[in-house]
């Protein structure tokens, strides 16, 4: 059972709340201080993506975040309920030439679809993205330091 569960309406303003809660629980779980910025960014990216999808396709359905403090690791699971989101960036960030992003031929606007999730998987060593017909589950894990997590 998760240590903390969050469900929130798909509003951009709530992503910050999710980041704050995730960082606070991670700190309490004993995640190293040096990794807290990584937790904050990765959870923010995963929640931003979920909120954008829900806002477009499932505005009445909340986004779910489960934070679990286990003896040897801290786990964050971000769940959206939008199937076939089609935002997979094949090849991840390495498939993008940064110079193309600022090419005069491209219109000013958002980065390519899937960019945020590609940041997550580049940032977090243990990140898993599971896509099903009913939605996507993004699981992020951080190992406990050698001394173990705080109780």
């Amino acid at each position: 059972m998760p240590t903390v569960e969050l469900t929130f309406s798909p509003l951009a303003a709530h992503v910050r709340t999710a980041r704050l809660v995730a960082t606070a629980v991670a700190r309490r779980a004993g995640v190293e201080d040096a990794l807290l910025d990584e937790v904050r960014l990765a959870v923010g990216e995963a929640c931003s993506r979920a909120v954008a999808l829900h806002a477009r396709y499932a505005p009445d359905t909340p986004v779910e975040v489960c934070l679990t403090d286990e003896p040897d690791e801290f786990t964050v699971v971000v769940i959206d309920r939008v199937g076939d989101s089609g935002d997979e960036l094949a090849g991840g960030l390495s498939s993008i030439d940064p110079m193309d992003l600022v090419s005069p031929d491209s219109e000013p606007g958002p980065l390519p679809s899937g960019f945020g999730l590609a940041v997550v998987t580049s940032l977090v060593d243990d990140a898993e993205v599971e896509r099903t017909t009913t939605g996507t589950t993004v699981t992020l894990r951080w190992k406990a330091p050698a001394t173990g997590l705080a109780s």
């Binding site: 980041r19 990216e45 940041v119």
Partner: peptide, 18 residues
Amino acid sequence: FLDSTGLGVLVGGLKRVR
């Protein structure tokens, strides 16, 4: 704090001034 949405805005700004 800066995430990829913020990066997108900076990239958009760079394209506009260029």
